Simulated assay, not measured.
Amino acid sequence: MTTPTAVLNADGSIDYAEFAPEGQLIQTHVTSTMVKSLESMIAGWVTTNMNQPALTPDMVIIANLAVADGLITSTQLANWATSQNIIVKDIFTGNGTPTPTTPTTSQSFVSAMNDPALTTAANAPTATQAQTTATLNQLQSASPTVPGPTPIPGHDVQADQVQGAYIAFYGRPADVAGQSYWMDQLQKSGGNLDAIINSFGNSAESKALYGASSVDQQVSNVYHQLFNRAADTGGLNYWVDQINTGKVSLAGAAMAIFNGSVGSDKAQINNKMVVASAFTDSLAHNSLANSLYTGETAAANARSYLFATNTDTTLAGKLAGISDAVALHIQSGIDADLAGVGITLTGMITTHV
């Protein structure tokens, strides 16, 4: 019997999956409007001590949202759960974290809700911040010895591959149409990234970014936009030689540098992947924002937004949490949005307060 799982989406809806006794998979999508109604219902169970035998993972998330929205207290929820023989480690208590065990979606969410960097006395984290932080926590706990970005839990692998290509070469999140097109091409090619790499290297955006620069400057720019640092001498010399001798294109080198990241560089790439994915998801859910993400101004602002991400997972959660606002302001300027999470950009120099 597979353990039921529930995922809190950025728009406040919940996807729930479980296997019935007969073996078939049952999947349910609970809209954000219904989640709000269920918050009140679960708060009613708690305050009247109704006999509800178990909290399923989706109900755990909703119960925690009820606490975050002030419909019930964390103490009420914890006491009620105990009286119903419900595992208390899955309940938001406002301090500490759940009892360590095999991670589940609900426990990751509760861990995020307990993160003091996102939760203050004045407000609880938004659904986007909570789910993003849960994802970042899962990435952080993954094996650090595997090179390249860690797969994002629950994400389409091909979507992440395409997103990675955009980050590696263009230094910005993917646009919806581009990601969809290249995912289709990737599937047709059996997962071969060569077509994407070749196309990126010959694009107008590539010429605008790299065309007037020397190979040394081009490679340095890749390192800078990926890792927010200068290239190490050994890496710079190696990739300049590989490009000058025709063994690899600049786009191919960018992907190799991206996939070869380890240690703090890998942590930075993981965070950039989560922030970029949140931004692309915001475009997919807002037609106005999607229409605004075009041209050099939008691309430059998107690069600044992604460049603000570093190895700090808490900051990455906050940056992902403002993806909707950044998407809507992508043509007019995003300085105010970044300032709201403590980021100041001067050219491509980032100050985090």
Rank of each mutant, 00 (worst) to 15 (best):
D90C: 08
M113W: 02
P144F: 12
I72T: 09
N114D: 11
N95T: 15
V146F: 09
Q129F: 02
A142C: 08
G70S: 09
T99V: 13
N123T: 15
K89L: 00
Q129R: 06
T101N: 15
P100M: 02
T120Y: 00
Q140I: 02
T126D: 03
A68E: 02
L136I: 12
V110C: 01
A68N: 06
L77F: 10
A54P: 04
D90F: 14
T82G: 11
P116N: 08
A54D: 11
T73M: 06
L118F: 02
T73V: 08
I152L: 03
T105M: 10
D58R: 07
A54W: 11
T73N: 06
T126G: 14
P125S: 09
N51M: 12
P98I: 11
F92Q: 12
I72G: 04
T73R: 06
P151C: 01
A130T: 12
Q107P: 05
N95L: 14
T101L: 14
T73G: 08
T133E: 04
A127V: 08
M113E: 01
T82E: 13
P147D: 13
F109W: 02
G154R: 05
N51R: 12
T75D: 10
G70I: 10
T73A: 04
P116D: 05
Q129M: 10
N79L: 14
T150Q: 10
Q76C: 14
Q107N: 15
Q76H: 12
V60D: 00
A121H: 12
N79H: 14
V146K: 13
N85F: 00
T119L: 05
L65G: 08
G96H: 03
S143T: 12
S83N: 14
Q84E: 01
G94E: 03
D58T: 04
L77P: 05
L136E: 07
A122S: 15
S143H: 06
V67H: 04
D115K: 15
P149S: 06
F109N: 00
T126K: 05
G148V: 09
T56Q: 14
D58K: 05
L118S: 00
T119R: 11
V110N: 01
P125N: 10
P151G: 00
L139S: 03
V88G: 08
Q76S: 13
A68Q: 03
G154A: 06
Q138P: 00
N123F: 13
S74E: 10
F109E: 00
N79G: 11
L71F: 07
I62E: 05
P147A: 15
A142K: 09
M59P: 06
A66G: 01
A81M: 04
T104I: 02
T56G: 12
I87C: 09
P53N: 01
